[in-house]
Write a protein that binds this DNA or RNA. Structure first.
Lengths: 135, 135
DNA sequence: CCAATTTTTGCAACTCAGTTGCAAAGTGAA
DNA sequence: TTCACTTTGCAACTGAGTTGCAAAAATTGG
């Protein structure tokens, strides 16, 4: 992906495509598993941490990324491939042996019926167990 | 619940019923919604924070409590009322308006079929939206 | 019962992810 | 160019979670 394409993606999602935002998107766009702020820092050794932080947050606010809490205590981000803006996406799997979290892209979150008065905006389905590498 | 009863619950779950553990259990046993370490500190003003922390962790290890990450960045605990030890329990709901997290006790987590090689131990289903009080 | 050992507890301090204040740099409009 | 606004880098702060350690309490063995 070249910078022009990245700029189009960003501006198409209401994000002014600044230099930092382009390099951050370039670093994360090909990642298929959830990553942390620290991961992003290591991919971008010359970019300031708080700038990366603010950029990831902006991307999440604009629904380009999805914030994920997998029980590790460290926030993770994953590329949002939801059709809708509702984030009722795919199931995540955290391996309690190696600690990695995976996107189960083909595993859709089944919907549930909420009690009266509750309105759903997003849903997160996290399974903990042993991944295929750690069996 | 008197102390004798609490001691029986704890020792029945493989926990030596010390003074701190009894008062902690006494403070949390009637709580129906997820709570934080800070909440527990406020219910137990004369008990040391790290002692409460270690006690809650012990309870969670012994499956009396359930650790829950609702995206607030602060760990929450909820009383475990799962039948099995697998923690495939009820759905949780976080209100993005008031920030509270609720146990939807009557809302069971639907199961999903995992890809080959993955083994499930626990599952967490979290819905974000607007609760009935904030509509 | 006492002494030795183990477990539990309270205190203080530390770690580190996340966050913010602020000034400098950059950008865009008039 | 000038002015206003946005973005960025730096440094410092916040606070949840965690740990080291010694004192206290409980348990075990003789």
């Amino acid at each position: 992906m070249n910078n022009k394409q990245i700029e189009n993606i960003l501006s198409g999602n209401g994000i002014h495509p600044t230099a930092v935002r382009v390099v951050v998107w370039n670093a994360i766009a090909d990642k298929h598993e959830p990553f942390t702020l620290k991961d992003a820092e290591q991919w971008l050794p010359y970019t300031d941490r708080s700038s990366i932080f603010r950029t990831l947050k902006l991307f999440a606010d604009q629904h380009l990324l999805h914030e994920l809490d997998d029980g590790s205590g460290i926030r993770k981000y994953c590329l949002c491939r939801c059709e809708s803006k509702q984030h009722i996406g795919h199931v995540h799997f955290t391996c309690t042996s190696c600690g990695k979290t995976f996107c189960l892209d083909n595993c859709h979150i089944p919907s549930v019926i909420l009690p009266k008065g509750y309105t759903q905006h997003e849903a997160e389905y996290l399974i903990k167990g042993i991944c295929s590498n750690c069996q």
